[in-house]
Design a protein around this nucleic acid. Structure first.
Length: 594
RNA sequence: GGGCGCGUAGCUCAGUUGGCAGAGCAGCGGACUCUUAAUCCGCCGGUCGAAGGUUCGAAUCCUUCCGCGCUCACCA
């Protein structure tokens, strides 16, 4: 079989069939040249003697040509339709299908793809074969000298994506990357089968391949795998972004995050930090006896936060549903049911504005602990953030946007009303009505905004004048009850509730209270919210009778905490925008004709 | 939603007073056994975001629209 392929005198085979009629003559000629070489390297490929690099001969494949080719086509078609995300109603500006360089670059690669298939080489083989992770190779041999490596004469097989290729005629260097770790592969014509050598030269940047051969050090001292055998693992049909400048276009980085991850180390670093953060958080809570649970995303009534929901509909039940804005009310039902310590790391959905701190879909960890109050939740919060920082960043101090942030407990506590008074000179409890507070603010020359209720106005004051100043981790405690319909009243001052928010880097990262477990008080508070709704506060909570019923069965004294996971990751990763820590942030759709 | 800015080759970017659309990288062909942003020679590559307008002539000026960013508003 391989002999037949090697002696084939029909270099045109394999490219006529894929020529695109819209290409001009000169381009077609260029392609013909490329196709010939593609054919030749494919023939070379068939000669590989290494059993590790097993390639089924064409004869063996003829039994299932439909399954094979059809499967590939089907997969490509599926891939295309998947790439047409609902938001992407036209091809991407970058890498789109309109005529241009990319088109012809893809054309060349499709030529090679076709030539490989023609020669019976699967460009997307189902199995990889034995391999050593690149990171392991580096770990084992990075500290070995050239002489030591020569004595060891150890062969490995490494796999990864080709990031760059530097060719010197009879010597080729390939930069391979796997899991973010790079390794150089060298191919010396003198040291290997010349057909394999040619095959290496014709691999494209972006291809996945497996290289087998001894580990050595080049004259310039670079650790390399000296290729003896090669196997194409997956063909890449589109060019990678520029190797030096990378992918900078912010929109392209968000829309095609996979490219961002390939060429920008920062994207990978943040993804890893996010994963580590979640792992550290789970391990912290698990170690304290919390049970991880899952509660509905589709809820018949939304609640647990002041926010507007997304609405949706269930066809079979003809039921109006909301995507959850919070899982709070469900988690407290579970505590009522005797699951005394529960947590959920949940995606919440809020139909509101987008900013560098807000994505419509975001991740919140909420945990509830029976028999605890908000002071114990403060201690839990401090300990958790500190431990997560240590696990993720290796230190309880982290750099965020030029500021050093120290998570070491205890964090300072300050009463909310005192914080506002210190910042603005206004005692919001004294100015305890919407009208008097507005008057007080007017007296200080402050912007009144459009807050419809006293509580909202206090919240605005706090957000404008206090929140941005809280760079070091700080607990703001004891909120006016109007702001917190789910928190228990303070025994010392009935106008306040036992609530705290944790602020870091000017952002709210945590929110907690001694949970309100008096069903009658809860009902009154939610009814007051209904009044606020009538006053124009469209975020006021609807009344959830089923939740009240659960409280009537008895909720133990419970401390609850919510943590904005995305924002926590921002701080730990030193990312200035929430979109950097969400792999696929919400973007406006690209529209046909734009 | 308002204000400001941006949108030019697959990627990163130039483009002068309104006067032939440019570079580097990538790609293709060639040379090359030590590169790691390889180098050298040659070549290919454009709906200048879209539509309309002004003009002898528009990437450039005007209008509208689309997308992105920053910012304000909104927003746990």
């Amino acid at each position: 079989m391989s002999e037949r392929a090697l002696t084939a005198q029909e270099p045109r085979v394999g490219h006529e069939g894929v020529a695109r009629p819209r290409l001009r003559v000169r381009a077609a000629q260029a392609r013909r040249g490329a196709g010939r070489h593609a054919w030749r390297e494919t023939a070379d490929r068939l000669r590989q003697p290494d059993p590790l690099l097993h390639v089924a001969p064409p004869a063996a494949r003829e039994g299932s040509p439909h399954e094979h080719g059809g499967g590939q086509r089907g997969r490509r078609a599926a891939g295309r339709s998947r790439s047409l995300h609902p938001c992407h109603t036209r091809p991407q500006r970058s890498g789109g299908t309109r005529a241009g360089v990319s088109d012809r670059e893809q054309e060349v690669r499709r030529q090679r793809l076709a030539a490989l298939r023609e020669a019976g080489v699967d460009p997307f083989p189902p199995r990889t074969g034995p391999r050593t992770p690149v990171a392991d190779v580096r770990e084992r041999f990075d500290d070995k000298s050239a002489e030591e490596l020569e004595q060891l004469a150890e062969s490995v097989a490494v796999c990864g994506r080709i990031l760059a290729q530097r060719s010197f005629g009879k010597l080729v260097f390939v930069t391979l990357v796997e899991e973010g770790v790079r390794l150089q592969v060298s191919a010396r014509k003198q040291e290997m089968d010349p057909d394999v050598f040619r095959f290496v030269k014709k691999l494209d940047v972006g291809d996945f391949a497996r290289f087998a051969g001894p580990v050595w050090r080049t004259q310039k001292g670079e650790l390399s795998v000296d290729v003896r055998e090669v196997q194409l693992l997956a063909k890449s049909l589109r060019p990678l972004p520029e190797k030096w400048h990378g992918l900078k276009d912010v929109e392209a980085r968000y829309r095609q995050r996979y490219l961002d991850l390939i060429v920008n180390e920062e994207a990978r670093r943040i993804a890893v930090i996010r994963s580590s953060t979640l792992r550290a958080m789970r391990s912290f809570l698990d170690a304290r006896g919390f049970l991880e649970v899952e509660t509905p995303v589709l809820q018949p009534l939304y609640g647990g936060a002041a926010a507007l929901p997304f609405t949706t509909h269930h066809n079979t039940y003809d039921q109006q549903l909301y995507l959850r804005i919070s899982d709070e009310l469900y988690l407290k039902r579970l505590v009522t049911g005797g699951l005394d310590r529960v947590y959920e790391i949940a995606h919440n959905f809020r139909n509101e504005g987008i900013s560098k701190k807000h994505n419509p879909e975001f991740t919140m960890m909420e945990c509830y602990q029976a028999y605890a109050d908000y002071r114990e939740m403060m201690e839990l919060t401090e300990a958790m953030f500190c431990e997560i920082a240590r696990q993720v960043c290796g230190d309880t101090k982290v750099e965020y946007q030029g500021a050093s942030i120290d998570f070491t407990p205890p964090w300072p506590r300050i009463e909310m009303t005192r914080a506002i008074e210190e910042a603005t000179g206004i005692d919001v409890l004294e100015a305890g009505e919407l009208s008097s507070l507005r008057a007080a603010m007017r007296g200080k020359g402050l912007d009144l905004g459009s807050a419809p209720t006293w509580g909202k106005l206090v919240d605005d004051l706090f957000g404008d004048h206090v929140e941005p100043e809280m760079v070091q981790p700080t607990f703001v405690i004891d909120y006016p009850w109007e702001l917190s319909p789910l928190a228990k009243r303070s025994p010392d001052n009935p106008r306040l509730v036992e609530r705290f928010e944790a602020f870091v880097a000017g952002m709210e990262l945590g929110n907690a209270f001694s949970e309100l477990n008096d069903p009658d008080d809860q009902r009154q508070r939610l009814e007051a919210q209904a009044g606020d709704a009538a006053d124009g506060d469209e975020e006021a909570h609807p009344l959830d009778e089923d939740y009240i019923r659960a409280l009537e069965h008895g909720l133990p004294p419970t401390g609850g905490l919510g943590v904005g996971v995305d924002r926590l990751v921002m701080v730990l990763a030193d990312a200035p925008n929430i979109r950097e820590v969400i792999l696929f942030p919400h973007l406006r759709p690209e529209v046909e004709g734009s």
